[in-house]
Design a protein around this nucleic acid. Structure first.
Lengths: 285, 285
DNA sequence: TCCCTGTTGGAATTTTAATTCCGATTTCAG
DNA sequence: CTGAAATCGGAATTAAAATTCCAACAGGGA
């Protein structure tokens, strides 16, 4: 991957400082452009030169002159700087994060020192948790809480890696006096454990790749029986999403082959807190 | 095809949901593209079609086919959706978790609006996880890993709120071929389950306030029998610390009376990753 | 096995955007 | 006021990216 782009030396702050230092020496039109660039980093990053020129009220060629006056080849180079800066500002998207994971993987059996493991893994978990901001929206939480509170019984399913999450929710809901049952598959009886699920019930399904056939089958059966399905899974294309009334996504991050369970746990706990607060309020009225 | 208006009527979530609904009907290559788009919104928004195609390992023309299969004129239209979504995500991310937690606590029983819950809780978890950087030092991880690898058998104990963490470690260590037993207290037999613990064994204890008497008693018995004790708990004054060979602290953060379990989970997973890497290296030599 | 249908890779083409060029205009020194 | 240099607008050109097209291929059914 020949990743060049000149000497990629600038970041946005450096560029802005540099631009400010040169500002006085610029011509009238170029100053207009400079002001726009300093004030509108996002538009500078994303719009086409023609659009930007139009908004400023100058010709596109002036943008190129502007860039060249500052020593760049063309306006595109400046846009690259701003695009890179924009990505870094995105929540949960530290740009060098993937790099660090790559480095970790490369150096994994190098020395046996696991010094980088901890930090990278912490970063990965923070990333995973941050990703929830976008996904576990208030509306979805409220919907899920309503399904749980409206149910005659709540059933929680999760096997293997998802089992700790399932059992956590089971524990919390029991403490919140929600009539909850854990379908734990003890004795290989998972299919049978779902027999009594009916239209007044809600099923909470936790499943991640590779999705357990038994769990998916049981969720299908529950959905067909008319139960509400609330799911915690990894992707929109997960087989559980299409039969879910509400779904939450987490777990998009992987380090050294380990998927972070902390993000999913955080999601589960968020749901439980939302539930707890809703019930507190209901009890108080 | 009932495509939404030619103007920007899709937002990213709608698009993703729509894509997921059509996923099954797509061809093999198109599924590859769909997965990339779902997983990499930022790159989808900003890279050129040629770059994206190259990264996925398909031809640029497939991207256009992908877009058209979904009813769009071309891939550029999809990029527009993602660019708009990307800009919307930008402003967030102010700062200072502690302040926000304070705010939530003040307003907690205010209105019943759980709007701030999610963000504050996410912040709290990030705080909890960040705190691990200081506490789960490399030396301690190595020590714990050595105790686990050096043991004839490993026993994991954790009840109630700590049980999900315990069972997670049990699951992971079984997958790593560590001879592990979960002391789960089924049938009220927790005291008896520890009878066979001896000086060649290691016990991993997970315990948080209020510390279960049975768990503490069992840990004491194990320590007296000469077993190594590795503990996950909350504070230096926790009753488990003084009998531990290695201890890790987490869980210092509390929101609305809920202690974060995600931080502890992250700690447990860090320990498991360190263990996994150590065993990989050992096997490779 | 062979054909048919749908899918794919890759070159060719079109579209769009970036950049250059040049004549017109402004600025300012003398 | 005049003329030269700097600046600018806008058409022309070039570069880059998106899209189309077609031949080859893969998979499934007769």
């Amino acid at each position: 991957m020949a990743r060049k782009g000149a000497d990629n030396s600038y970041d946005v702050d450096e560029f802005n400082a540099f631009l400010a230092s040169r500002f006085d020496g610029l011509s009238k039109q170029l100053k207009k452009i400079a002001r726009f660039v300093l004030d509108n980093p996002v538009d500078t990053a994303l719009d086409t030169a023609a659009e930007i020129a139009n908004r400023i009220g100058v010709q596109p060629s002036s943008l190129i002159r502007f860039a060249q006056a500052l020593g760049f080849d063309g306006f595109s180079e400046i846009q690259r700087i701003f695009r890179a800066g924009l990505v870094q500002q995105l929540p949960g998207y530290s740009a060098n994060y993937s790099d660090r994971i790559e480095k970790l993987k490369e150096g994994a059996d190098d020395t046996g020192s696991d010094h980088p493991v901890l930090n990278v893994f912490i970063d990965a978990n923070i990333d995973a948790i941050n990703a929830l901001r976008g996904d576990a929206a208030v509306a979805k939480l409220e919907q899920a809480v309503a399904h749980i509170n409206g149910a005659r019984n709540v059933y929680v399913i999760g096997q293997r890696r998802s089992y700790p999450v399932a059992i956590y929710m089971y524990y919390m809901m029991r403490n919140l006096d929600v009539p909850t049952y854990l379908l734990d598959g003890v004795g290989g009886l998972l299919p049978e454990q779902g027999n009594q699920i009916g239209p007044e019930d809600t099923v909470i399904v936790v499943t991640f790749p590779n999705y357990s056939d038994q769990v998916i089958a049981l969720a299908h059966k529950a959905a067909e029986a008319g139960a509400k399905v609330v799911s915690l899974t990894d992707k929109l294309v997960s087989p559980i999403v299409k039969i879910s009334d509400v779904y939450f996504l987490s777990d998009r991050v992987e380090v050294s082959g380990f998927r972070t369970v902390a993000g999913t746990m955080c999601l589960a706990q968020t749901l439980m807190i939302a539930l707890g607060m809703a019930r507190e309020n209901a009890a108080g009225e």
